[in-house]
């Protein structure tokens, strides 16, 4: 088995927020009828979590399930568990019109840590999404545009946000996040 390698080798930037590329994560894209009983069982078996409500994320330890669209979920789990989980979910969804794909090595994941206002400000500099806490509370996934590329992010708690983007644009995303988090660039809009 080959060693999983980060896109940027775990790059880190300390600014008004800390931008860190997190260790390789297992990520599984699941598409199908989210209301089907088999889907509920397959996700519960793979991640130990229920199917999240519209636009939200459910998390427990290093497992998470993200609502990506009306017929798409992303299951986040430890990198080594992904192949077995894909096989189990594919088998569990055999009777459904569904698709299960391991996208672990096609995505990059960043963690942003810092004070809530600075965190929201850093993302608001790059994305057209409404970053006020009323519009994007903790536990809501927002798929949006980050400067020139697509990304999805959510607040795990008040001081940490997670961001997923395509691996091919990982260095671009790390660059713009670091730039937006440059010390001295505070706007103070959310504080």
């Amino acid at each position: 088995m080959s060693e999983p390698v980060n896109a940027l080798g775990g790059a880190r930037f300390d600014g008004i927020v800390q931008v860190t590329e997190v260790a390789p994560q297992g990520m599984i894209t699941v598409r199908g009828d989210l209301g089907a009983g088999a889907m509920e069982k397959a996700v519960m078996k793979a991640a130990g979590l229920p199917i999240p409500a519209k636009t939200s994320v459910v998390m427990k330890g290093d497992h998470a399930v993200l609502w990506m669209s009306p017929d798409e979920l992303m299951v986040v789990l430890p990198h080594g568990d992904a192949p077995a989980a894909v096989a189990a979910m594919t088998a569990a969804l055999k009777s459904e019109h569904a698709l299960v794909v391991d996208v672990s090595d096609a995505r990059a994941v960043f963690a942003l840590e810092g004070e809530g206002p600075a965190l929201r400000e850093t993302l608001a500099k790059l994305s057209p999404a409404d970053m006020r806490s009323a519009a994007l509370p903790v536990g809501v996934v927002r798929r949006t545009r980050l400067a020139q590329v697509p990304a999805a992010f959510w607040f795990a708690n008040d001081t940490e946000a997670r961001l997923i983007c395509f691996r091919s644009v990982a260095s671009y995303v790390f660059g713009i996040l670091s730039h937006a988090a440059t010390p001295g660039s505070e706007v103070g809009h959310f504080s």
């Binding site: 519209k54 636009t55 669209s69 009306p70 057209p128 999404a129 409404d130 519009a135 927002r142 798929r143 949006t144 545009r145």
Partner: peptide
Amino acid sequence: PYCGVACDETE
């Protein structure tokens, strides 16, 4: 109307 997200024109 599917996900209820208020999208900016550029999205």
